[in-house]
């Protein structure tokens, strides 16, 4: 073993052997003191025997015997029913207010339907709606309320596109 002839300092016996242990203990102490103001238990409790009955509760709900029944397979019907109710509601209002001309679903303002769907809780999450709406079948015209006029499109492009080449248009489309 090589001796350090220049170093006249001494260390307590076993100092280096126990260094790691003492360092880890200190780190643990510091960590504990840093989070000491945050309690480790958040105080929540559950009714006695709750976890023993979770499976049977789930089973009952799946069989439609639970207290809160969610008909997972009938989203589509629910969706159409909600739309139908919205249609009837708006149609009845229109009937009372104006002359009794024949009204159809197409007479409903899309804003009325949107407002109804937004303001009335259908019990469907966006997650669930996403499961039944096939996005591949949705076109831009389903989202944009009115047909875009050509001059509106041109004004938009004029204001927002600096280089016409960025649009990657074919020559005959520029004509």
């Amino acid at each position: 073993m090589k001796k350090n002839h220049d170093n006249k300092f001494k260390t307590p016996e076993g100092y280096f052997e126990s260094f790691n242990e003492r360092l880890m203990a200190r780190l643990a102490d510091e960590e504990a003191s840093q989070s000491s103001s945050i309690p480790k238990n958040d105080g929540f409790a559950v009714p006695d025997g709750y976890f023993e009955n979770v499976y049977s509760s789930v089973q009952k709900r799946m069989d439609g015997k639970g207290t809160k029944v969610i008909a997972l397979k009938s989203y589509r019907a629910f969706y159409y029913a909600a739309a139908a109710i919205a249609a009837l509601f708006v149609l009845s209002l229109a009937w009372n207010w104006s002359n009794p001309t024949q009204l159809g679903f197409e007479d409903l303002a899309s804003t009325d339907i949107t407002a109804y769907l937004e303001n009335n809780d259908l019990g469907l999450s966006s997650y669930e709606i996403a499961e039944i709406v096939d996005l591949e079948e949705v076109t831009i015209l389903d989202i944009v309320e009115n047909q875009l006029e050509e001059d509106v499109i041109l004004d938009y492009l004029d204001e927002n596109v600096e280089e016409i080449e960025d649009l990657n248009l074919e020559y005959d489309e520029i004509q």
Binding site: I38, P39, N41, D42, G43, F44, A45, V46, P47
Partner: peptide, 13 residues
């Protein structure tokens, strides 16, 4: 009834 936390635990929430 299913929250048994003390004042600190309530403050944590």
């Amino acid at each position: 009834v299913y929250f048994e936390g003390d004042a600190i635990q309530l403050k944590l929430q």
